[in-house]
Amino acid sequence: MIERTPILNAVTQVVLLVMLFVILVPFWMVFAAASHDFVTVNRVPMPLWPGGHLYENLSEVWIKGNFGTALTNSLISSVLVTVGKVFLASITAFSIVFFRYRARMLVFWAIFITLMLPLEVRIVPTYAVAANVLSPLQQMLNLLGFQLVLPEWNLLNTYAGLVLPLVATATGTFLYRQFYLTIPKDLAEAAKMDGAGPLRFYWQILMPLSRSNMAALAAIMFVYAWNQYLWPLLVITDQANYATATMQLQKMVPEGFGEPPVWNTAMAATLIVLVPPAIVSILLQRLIVRGLITTEK
């Protein structure tokens, strides 16, 4: 650094170390609690050294929480959200940035405004739409005087129900738009000159250029989709077949606040739920951080 500040340096290191402890210790406590038997976990204070019952607790809760199915569902829906989002965002932004037509500002704002109201604040009517997803189109048709009757299409208890409302947001579109705007216009002009059509330009030039962008967005979306809780809770009623992993945590908690859960298995369930997104964010941290920061610029 610029000058010698031994005292300040010592204070800095101590504070950083203490905060490291504060921030990471909940993870350790979850892990330690998940490895104790019922008696040890309820001892106050609980021994911080892990016990020998981790496997036992995990296998008990694996059956109790139906995690085989739940993790598969979480994985499928998160991957679908990720792929759908990355694909949709890239083509929409491509159209908005690289094509010349009058309505493109309108399109941009129509999508951009959705950033304003997250799913949680419009949860009740969105649920009603999911129960019959063609009803908005049907009512629009009726309004315009068409007599066409669309079939009822119920999204409750389907992957489409879990995935589509999460894909219908603007975050990724915005990220891609920001990125495309940094690509020099001459590149598109040159491609055109060489006889490449828009789709070829998209596929052979933009795609390879946006690889790291794509990875960043994919990692962010995966964590986001995996951690969804309120929406799956509503849209999935057939919990035996379609429950996601986060939803199963609710089953570890007795109704009402008075009665405590069985802590060692509850923490084993928490461990199961938190590990996949934690791995993604540890391995892909650099990408995620860069993605987050460019989205918000």
Partner: peptide
């Protein structure tokens, strides 16, 4: 940065 990856219900239960 790691707690970023925590699902709200998982953090809540912990």
């Amino acid at each position: 940065f790691i707690p970023y990856a925590m699902a709200a219900p998982a953090a809540g239960l912990a």
